[in-house]
Design a protein around this nucleic acid. Structure first.
Ligand SMILES: [Mn+2]
Ligand SMILES: [Mn+2]
Ligand SMILES: [Zn+2]
Ligand SMILES: [Zn+2]
Lengths: 150, 150
DNA sequence: ATATAAATGCAACATTATTGTATTTAGAAA
DNA sequence: TTTCTAAATACAATAATGTTGCATTTATAT
């Protein structure tokens, strides 16, 4: 499920976006691509505790600007970041997919494969983007509850 | 659109939830029911600047616990609060409606009338609640853009 | 190799969330 | 009505998070 990318590909990504290939950026990219769930800044900080808090903050910001990652708020309102699957451009995201927030493990999953149904809003509303949030149990946690632990 | 309720009804609501009828609580209730959009804590603070910030914080918390209001995060991740339209109970909310966040005026609208289509998630996911977010222009702001200002 | 713009790390500050507690107050009981 | 008590408020203090400025370091173009 998690995308497999080589370090060379990460360097390529940075270059394409006119970003310098630095160690902190490559590490963030590799961590985010290795997971199939979104990552909060506290998550990043605890794993990469040798990188400055502000540096991570700025890396996440610039990645979001460039359309490399997108931000999603979980049930508690804390920001989580996930890689953009699609054709996101600088300052123009297209992340209209479903976000699933597991109430047990708290992980946030981007379910890109799901297409969002068309909705008609009340008169006057002119929607430009939709996202759906679902909360409940993710595959891992629902398995734990019922049968054997994975 | 905004619900009209008398002060007597607000007192009644507090009593039903075993909350004392205090001036700050009644003022918060009356403000939130008078609007058809969600209210952020900074909003409340600026209007009711004689009430302590922490008091407002705790009022919002207890109202949410009791199922009187629900929290919704806007595009910037700041919490907004809106009255629950339906059968929300203590620690058991049923606010599965669409939230519309206007990119111009930043207001958040709860569109309760809209029913959310059934969605089938990938195998293993066990959703318990859905909410849809839409962003774009609200009726007021779309009108401003095209024709005369309202 | 050198120059330079970009990125990092550190300090400082801003904002918001949260907890503790003394004082006040609503509502029950006398 | 007065008295009592648990609940609520206000204020102080701390924690957590977001943001900016700037000196130092580093990637990369020349
Ligand atoms: Mn996503
Ligand atoms: Mn709502
Ligand atoms: Zn889970
Ligand atoms: Zn608007």
């Amino acid at each position: 499920m998690a995308q497999v990318k080589s370090n060379y590909q990460f360097e390529d990504m940075l270059q394409k976006h006119n970003l310098k290939k630095t160690a902190p950026r490559l590490r963030v990219l590799s961590m985010m691509y290795s997971k199939n769930t979104a990552t909060s800044q506290p998550d990043l900080e605890s794993v990469m505790n040798d990188i400055d808090r502000v540096t991570l903050y700025r890396i996440l910001n610039v990645f979001e600007e460039k359309g490399i990652i997108h931000k999603v708020f979980d049930l508690n309102g804390t920001a989580n970041y996930a890689v953009c699957h699609s054709d996101c451009q600088e300052n123009h995201h297209h992340d209209e997919h479903l976000h699933f927030n597991c109430t047990a493990c708290k992980n946030v999953y981007c379910l890109n494969e799901l297409n969002i149904p068309k909705l008609t809003l009340p008169a006057g509303f002119e929607p430009q983007a939709f996202t759906i949030y679902a909360s409940g149990l993710c595959p891992k946690c629902s398995k734990k509850g019922t049968a054997k632990v994975n």
